[in-house]
Structures are given as C-alpha cells and as structure tokens.
C-alpha cells in the first residue's frame, strides 16, 4: 500500500490520519464529559484535564498536518455510483466536520487561557494566551465548546451511518476505500 493518495484510492497516510483523528475525537469527547463530573479528591480530577488539553492541542496539530497532506495529494474522485445529492451532502458534511473540529479546539483553548494563563501541553511546552480577559470568557467558551462537541458527535454519527449505508445497502467501496483498499 502506498503512502500517497491517487485519484482512486486513499494512501496509507490519509487513512491512518483519518482513523487517528476519529479515535482521538471520540476519546476526547468521552474524557471531557467524564472528567467534568469527577470529585475533587479523584486522582483524575487534575490528570483528566491535563490529558484532555494536551491531546487536544496535539489533535489540532494533527488536523493541520492532515489538511496540508490533503492539499498536497490528489483526492480520490467520488465513486460513479454516488448520486448528486450524496456527493453534495458528503462534501458539506466533511467541510462542517473540519469546521466544527477547529471551533471546538479553539473554544477549548479560550477556556483555559481566559485569564491569561498559558496552556500546558504534556509539560513539553506552553501555548500562550492570546485573546483573554473578555468578561465571562471561560463560561462563554465553555458553552460553545460543549455545544459544538455534541453537534460534532451527531454529525460524525451521520458520517459513520452514511459509510455503513454505502457498505451494507449500496454495497460499494466507499468504506473500504477509507480502509486503504
């Protein structure tokens, strides 16, 4: 299997990044919901947010690399069996998925940096605050972060259901292509 895409297949890099992003996004969503319900004396009361933020920033970098890779590679063309509305809907969904991802990651950053504190990433480096000090910034950013995360989960589920529809109902190669076949 080749690294790069061609017009009929996704290369290994695109496939790996797709599934890594998917796994990370669902993982971060679960972690985020779980950690905000922890009690003060829980070991993970501090560890949870630490991982959530560090992984979140890593995801941001990964998505940037993924978009860069996408720009540098040919895109597999839609299968001939995909009808017009499917193509339009899937394109819109993909774009919205990226948009939501960025909005969620940026709003998360704006919670942690709302008072001007930097955001620590794995203790390796710290992202400095930029936009901060807006009245109740942490609450506003927090509401956006959660609402958009739930929206993303709904949209990602639609995306997954569509893939399953192609696989089991239409019996085409849509899902297999994202497995590198």
């Amino acid at each position: 299997m080749q690294w790069r895409n061609d017009t009929t297949r996704y290369g290994l890099a695109a496939v790996l990044m797709h599934w890594l992003v998917a796994l990370t996004v669902f993982g971060l969503f679960g972690l985020g919901l779980w950690m905000t319900g922890l009690t003060y004396y829980d070991q993970w009361y501090r560890l949870g947010p630490w991982w959530h933020k560090s992984i979140g920033v890593s995801l941001f970098l990964l998505v940037l690399v993924r978009l860069g890779w996408r720009a540098l590679n040919p895109q597999p063309v839609p299968l001939p069996t995909h009808v017009g509305w499917e193509r339009r809907l899937s394109k819109a969904t993909h774009e919205l998925l990226y948009l939501l991802l960025f909005a969620i990651m940026i709003s998360g950053y704006l919670i942690s940096t709302a008072d001007g504190r930097a955001l620590e990433v794995f203790g390796w480096f710290a992202l400095p605050a930029t936009l901060h000090g807006i009245e109740h910034q942490e609450d506003i950013a927090g509401t956006i972060h959660l609402t958009l995360a739930i929206t993303l989960m709904a949209l990602a589920s639609l995306h997954a259901l569509a893939a399953l529809k192609h696989h089991f109902l239409d019996r085409d190669r849509t899902l297999l292509r994202m497995l590198g076949r």
Binding site: A114, D115, H136
Partner: peptide, 12 residues
C-alpha cells in the same frame, strides 16, 4: 456570577 478567584477555570 462575578466570583473571581484569579483562575478562570476554577471560576467557571
């Protein structure tokens, strides 16, 4: 809502 402990995450 105007509580301020000098730490945005805690205030949230």
């Amino acid at each position: 809502a105007s509580i301020d402990s000098n730490h945005a995450e805690r205030d949230k």
